[in-house]
Amino acid sequence: MLYGHATFHTSPYSLSGLNEATQHEELAVDLFLQSIVNSLIQGGFFALWAVGMVLVFGIMGVVNFAHGELVMVGAYAIWVLKAQMGMGYIPAVFIAVILVMLIGIFMERFLFRPKREDPLGGLINSIGILFILQVVALLVGGTGPAKQVTPAFPGTLILDEFMRIPHQRLFSLGVSIAALLILWFFLTRTKLGWSMRAVALDREAAALQGININRTSLIAMAISAGLAGLAGALMAPISNIYPHMGHNVIITAFIVTIVGGLGSLSGAVLAAFLYAILHTFVTAYFSGTIASMVGLLLMVVVLIVKPTGIMGQRVSE
């Protein structure tokens, strides 16, 4: 909660300067509370984006630059199914997740598996897919302005005069947290989950113990893509949908995975919420550009000072 604290201290300080204008003071308090709520919802998305990256990096050793494009495809799927074809939101989410999973499975089987011994090759292949998926999105949606999808849950939860949370966002946060809990349960409580963690720790040793590396990698990629698709599907009704929306996703996912410690899932989730708080507050009080700059520099500092991140463990030779 380091960054939460930091902003908490600066905020009363800025209030004392506005004592004569009580109305401003109230607005400032509300901005603060609203920012906390926003950062929770952001954090849910950040965690979904990052956890998929960590899984694929940890188990397959691949840096998937097209991860943001998988999120984008999830969002486009909702736009096609719900906004264009009139399908219900929940079934559309299911189809979007399955579609993106299939793309992920294809990528693992044909692009990452043949390049398992060549991490640079896998990375370049993911850049290739990134371009292709962006153009597919253009072909599907055409150029022109960003697409939008009307919320499936229109109401708004009103906590106070200035603090409102649209039901759609509450739904997103709930589903994100549920998905993360299911993943945690799967990885820690099932045999398959255990074998995946074994591969992440030491691929060769796991293979020697009879764990099927191909199958594990395929499942890891399917889960990673599924989470990306889910994130896209959840974002669709509350954000703009356009071919390059993956750019922001991948940068954020990098920041979160590095700060959290590459390979550490719990670190990534923790870092996702911390970074969401930091980003939301810096955006609210300064600007979005400064927020991104702070995030990038934070990542560089972590890379230099502790390349294993806040939760990662140093692997000795």
């Binding site: 920041i255 990038l296 230099i304």
Partner: peptide, 28 residues
Amino acid sequence: TPLFRMTQFYFLIGSFAVGEAIRLAWIF
């Protein structure tokens, strides 16, 4: 000095982050 404390993948990502921060400075 800071960048070459990283190598390989970390350097790739680190160099990206520093570059993007410089670019954001031009915008800001």
